[in-house]
Write a protein that binds this DNA or RNA. Sequence first.
DNA 1: GTTTCTGTTGTCAC
DNA 2: CGTGACAACAGAAA
Length: 259
Amino acid sequence: MPELPDVEGFRRTLAACGQGRRIRDVRVADAGVLHGVSGRQLQRDLEGCRLAEPERYGKWLLAHTDGPTVLFHFGMTGGLLCCSRTDPPHPHDRVVFEVDDRQLRYRDQRKLQGIWLGDDAVAKVLSEQGPDALGLGRAEFVQLLSGRRGTIKAAIIDQSVIAGLGNLLSDEILWRAELHPRRRVAGLGSEEVRRLHTEMGRVLRSSVRAGCVPPRASWLTGHRDDPDPRCPRCDGPLRRGRTAGRTGVWCPRCQPEGD
DNA sequence: GTTTCTGTTGTCAC
DNA sequence: CGTGACAACAGAAA
């Protein structure tokens, strides 16, 4: 699930469910999601801490407390849920934070990422991120892309360039801006870069409101998994292929390849 | 029934 | 810089 809009949704969940409340207990069902901290230490360091306003940066979620900060990354299949104690346990509930009479559950099938604890981890992670994609100004956007030599898709899903965009979002944005994912950044005109920035803003605002990249019929994302996917704009057949190590979808008519 | 492939993540070696 | 392998796992495809 998680790209920027999904993580923003988890941030809201955390705020609504936990902010201002104390962590009574932490139960680690699978220490395999913990990085640089044992289950026992996580429990000990967080017990009794009061949750402050949570923060999202790119695809990272920071659960600040009056003690240490907990860092979450959700990989491809993770999520944060607000549950009651009576909700049935799920086999992929890896860590459960008991907060008052509720539970915040870190649920993740594949365990590609996980949970970190403490300022050192926070500092390291944030130092490796580019500016957050949401609300990124045009001048800064132009600046980030200038001088890059690779393809445009590789650039915008690189978290050290811009934080928050993933495979789905980048395909959606490029399709709307009518730019082929394998266009070279250096070959883009200033009008094209401007378009890209505009569409990034639009797609992000809609997606954040929805809490995910919405699979609407009028969006490219609504057709990724169709057996015979067609472009919602020109009705031509969509193409699927690998770019920047990810399987992407684009419309060869609306998104011409040539530089 | 069994093997293979795919995927909204990131990192590493070549 | 780009590509492929990998990490872990479920569900679908073969």
